[in-house]
Nucleic acid binder design. Structure first.
Length: 639
RNA sequence: GCCGCGGUGGCUCAGUCGGUAGAGCGGCUCCUUGGUAAGGAGCAGGUCGAGGGUUCGAUUCCCUCCCGCGGCUCCA
């Protein structure tokens, strides 16, 4: 090709440009959209991300990448990681960079280095800022594999990466100021793009997530093209911290923990009201949906878990004790108990689907470092049920469950999605059965209309599952309910029923929870609503405030009236001022405040203040009660 | 469980370069009898996470343990 050759480049709007060979992506894009060019941080060439400075040598399609494009965002995060590596190796020359990918939130970079201190972080932040101010360019350099091995020097981690590159393929490096790093790229043009880079913190990890792996130090961060965008993000994070259920729940007096029972929640009176309401929510349709509630022992001898498979696959999570020379395990799940009930008598196909619900306390010996407020505990109660079904009943049951889930999560205004988890490495049964089960789950998911993704190898050891993930109002994901198809445990317990054909068949079991556990669900919900629970869940729904002491009799009578209508009300008897008591009710996030004083004594009305709204309305007591009952009946999210 | 960082009244935090601790909020009592987010005064409340060591003396320095936080891993 001669110097004067041109190639045809197609652009996103369908136009084409004849471009001189050797022109850069930047040249083309600048000419195409001069006004917007400043928002382009990289480009996509035939679907692959490239640097803006990359030369164009053949015909193809070119598309700009902005921060708002997922690929553009990744380029920025990756460049940020690169800059952090530069800063850290400047601060600690012995540090060996390993890898630094973008993540859903931001990025991280792992280093082979001594444990990092807060001072190191401060230094890194300072050096990052220095690089940003001096507008250093990200320069791509391509060399042969042999040269690359020389360039990475004694960094054995990078040597490993170079060794993986095929012979004859050029290896790319990026140079930023004095820092040179093996990197596939692409990057933003210069460090000016990283004005909104923030180092979130450091943590020690083990290489490859393997507990026995080598120790690494992970620097985590997040980057935005500008400082104001970063500030907005940090503000959102601050807001998230203020919603922390561990703080909010303690302040509202819902639950507590003590050092002597780590991971075992205490439910305080107010919290217990919430738990009972949640329980009522998920059980009120039990009769019409054909559920029967059972309660099975808290502990079983080891042999039960050997039968179920838990001893082999889950033993490290089972609390154990010993009596009369036998080892007992505290149940981590309700399924063995339900299996034993099914097994206890001869069963007919006419009994199916047999739906056994059990809300019993479960104990799981979670590793100490994983405990987290209510969202990760060692004692929990699931809204659990086991559905014993025949193969042709599966689909209908699953469809009903998904409808239920829809109703439940809509009530809480939680956005949810499904995750289909398939056969793990450690599994029971035949692969053909697994395939069939997975296909059934997938079919039902496809017709549900709710988005789902598939996680290969993440299923339970006894069957594939659908997990429910919810996002709270700040976009953070949580796993709550789960639906698990089980062809294995029923067979291990030799469960059988007599079919219409007179033959004995093994039932299939659907393990299912809707909200998951009260503990985690409430943790998520508290963060979702910032402690402002929906009125039907609020421990106190109405606070009556008598204006002065002489109105307390009036207040008492009103409390009794509300109580008789099934509304949880209390009286703010106090020598405090009215304003102070209103404030206390607001802080306690009580949905309604009703004031009674001289005016109300005369008119029979009450002055109602609704949580979160300033001002008040004068309503007759009857009107107010109707309003409250209406909100409770429809399980409104807000008062 | 692993790595790092923490632990001071109920809560949020200050402080002690080694001489046994303070504030605000909350609680209690009294005064105030109020009209929609903090009326006033007084009082009580801490073996400074636990144990051991160094020291004349440890909340402070060292070690071990417990718990928490941030991650890793795992998971409802």
């Amino acid at each position: 090709m001669g110097a004067g050759d041109t190639v045809d480049v197609s652009l996103p709007d369908g136009t084409h440009q004849l471009v001189a060979v050797g022109s850069t992506a930047a040249d083309v894009l600048k000419q195409w959209r001069p006004a917007e060019f400043a928002t382009f941080l990289a480009a996509s060439w035939d679907g692959h991300p490239i640097d803006l400075a990359a030369p164009i040598r053949s015909a193809g399609s070119l598309r700009p990448l902005r921060f708002s494009d997922p690929e553009g965002r990744e380029v920025l995060q990756h460049s940020a990681a690169h800059l952090v590596a530069k800063a850290l190796t400047e601060a600690i020359p012995q540090a060996l960079p390993t890898a630094g990918p973008p993540t859903e939130e931001g990025f991280y970079y792992d280093f082979d280095v001594r444990p990092l201190t807060p001072e190191d972080v401060a230094k890194v932040r300072e050096l990052v800022q220095r690089s940003v101010s001096s507008l250093e360019r990200f320069e791509r350099v391509e060399v042969s594999k042999r040269e690359a091995l020389e360039w990475v020097g004694s960094n054995r981690h990078k040597q490993g990466y170079v060794a993986e590159v095929a012979e004859g393929v050029p290896v790319s490096f990026y140079r930023t100021g004095s820092f040179l790093d093996l990197c596939r790229g692409p990057h933003v043009p210069d460090t000016g793009w990283l004005a909104g880079l923030h180092v979130l913190g450091v943590s020690a990890i083990t290489a490859g997530g393997d507990p026995a792996g080598e120790a690494r130090q992970r620097v985590r961060g997040v980057a935005f093209p500008t400082r104001p965008e970063l500030d907005a993000y940090l503000k959102l994070r601050e807001e998230a911290e203020a919603r922390d259920h561990r703080v909010v729940g303690a302040r509202l007096g819902l639950f507590m923990f003590i050092d002597e029972a780590p991971g075992f929640p205490f439910w305080l009176p107010s919290g217990m009201v919430v738990v009972r309401e949640l329980e009522r929510f998920v059980t009120e349709h039990f009769r019409e949906d054909g559920y029967q509630e059972v309660r099975t022992p808290l502990m079983f001898a080891q042999s039960v878990y050997e039968t179920s498979g838990h001893w082999e696959h889950y033993r490290e999570n089972i609390f154990q004790t010993e009596a009369d020379g036998r080892v007992y395990g505290v149940k981590p799940m309700n399924c063995p108990g339900s299996m034993l009930i099914f097994q206890s008598t001869s069963r007919s196909y006419r009994e199916l689907p047999l739906r056994l619900a059990e809300f019993a306390p479960l104990h799981r010996l979670e590793r100490s470092g994983t405990l987290h407020g209510l969202t990760r505990v060692r004692e929990m109660v699931q809204d659990d049920a086991h559905l014993f079904v025949s193969e042709d009943q599966i689909e209908a049951e699953l469809t009903k469950l998904l409808a239920w889930i829809q109703r439940a999560f809509t009530t809480f205004r939680l956005a949810w999605s499904y995750e289909l988890s398939t056969r793990p490495a450690h599994f029971l049964g035949e692969t053909a059965q697994w395939d069939r089960a997975e296909a059934t789950l997938e079919k039902v998911l496809k017709t549900s209309g709710v988005p789902y993704r598939t996680s290969a190898g993440e299923g339970a050891f006894y069957g594939p599952k659908i997990d429910i993930h919810v996002r709270d109002s700040l976009g953070r994901p949580w796993q709550t309910g789960t639906i698990q198809l089980d062809y294995q445990i029923p067979a291990r317990f030799h469960l059988q029923y007599q079919g219409a054909d007179g033959q004995l068949h093994t039932p299939i079991v659907i393990h299912r929870t809707i909200l998951g556990t009260w503990e985690r669900f409430l943790g998520v919900l508290l963060e979702h609503c910032a402690g402002r629970l929906p009125p039907w869940l609020a421990p106190i729904q109405v606070r009556i405030i008598p204006v002065a002491e002489r109105h307390e009799g009036l207040g008492h009578a009103f409390v009794r009236e509300l109580d008789s209508r099934g509304i949880r009300a209390d009286l703010a008897r106090s020598s405090e001022t009215l304003s102070k008591r209103v404030r206390e009710a607001e802080v306690a996030k009580i949905p309604w405040v009703a004031v009674v004083g001289d005016q109300e004594a005369a008119s029979g009305a009450t002055a109602v203040r609704t949580h979160g709204r300033k001002g008040q309305r004068s309503l007759s007591k009857g009107e107010f009660i109707d309003e409250v009952l209406g909100k409770l009946r429809e399980r409104a999210f807000e008062p």
